[in-house]
Write a protein that binds this DNA or RNA. Structure first.
Lengths: 138, 138
DNA sequence: TTCTTATTAATACTCATTACAATATTGTAT
DNA sequence: ATACAATATTGTAATGAGTATTAATAAGAA
């Protein structure tokens, strides 16, 4: 099974009709777990898809989020970032280089939604920041 | 001791020179625990300070954050929000009205920084989202 | 095919934030 | 007080992410 067909099926599992553009975006997300911004996705794909529009990348990611195939991260005040891994895990952003990394060794309890009579709590996001090793020459 | 003088001293504790503008902004933050945006602060103060510039509000908040008097929240993808309460607590944003509220009944352990040999982790932010009671007519 | 709908593309627009330059204020030394 | 230097404030312009709109294209059904 070639990778594109695999991605096709992946999209179908989320009830997303797999167009060429959607498949390309999803394939990029699956193969590049870097929590990319819209711009990074667009810049990565446009050389091989010269007609690709940035608007399409926006629309595609909105759709992926709506269908639950992707999580939008609110950790970088500059840009929205997207993560294909929707399982419970936290993120770290380096304040120097701006890269976002996964943090998996976080107690799963932390992702339980707290009880509240004031709010119907639906999502959690646990975000860390600091400096990555590359940025402190270590 | 009048409120302004109190705010003066509050700023001094963070090594912030208390100008008229800074005092007004801090006083607003102390008296309005609503995690306001820059615009909300500006709109609230400008009637009584007609010459106030929005740039000053930006500069002031940047300074407050730098001095540790205020925390910038990254929870609302639309705007930055600011919180004078720098103690360990989480936040909830309503996806309908956009208001941000404090969540205090979160296990203090959740705010401990995890060990990592890849990153020097310096801050945590725990953000919840969903729908508030006002927005679901309840 | 032809009609209809969904998707993509291109462009224009909005609006938060930043950059920059000019003015005003404050603190200090004389 | 006055002069000077440092800091703070203001106004305007620029940037750039995200959104809205509309036209063009592709896909699907009849």
């Amino acid at each position: 099974m070639n990778p594109t067909l695999q991605t096709h099926n992946y999209l179908l599992r989320f009830s997303i009709k797999p167009s060429v553009q959607r498949t390309a975006v999803m394939e990029f997300l699956l193969n590049n777990r870097i929590h990319p911004t819209i711009d990074e996705i667009y810049l990565a794909l446009s050389p091989n898809m010269p007609t690709l529009s940035k608007t399409t990348v926006y629309n595609t990611l909105d759709l992926f989020v709506e269908k639950g195939a992707v999580r939008a991260l609110v950790i970088d005040e500059k840009n929205a970032r997207y993560d294909v891994d929707t399982s419970a895990h936290a993120h770290f952003m380096c304040n120097s280089c701006g890269k976002v990394h996964d943090i998996f060794n976080v107690n799963p309890m932390f992702f339980q939604l707290p009880e509240s009579d004031k709010f119907k709590i639906q999502t959690v996001e646990i975000s860390y920041s600091g400096i990555c090793n590359e940025c402190q020459g270590n």
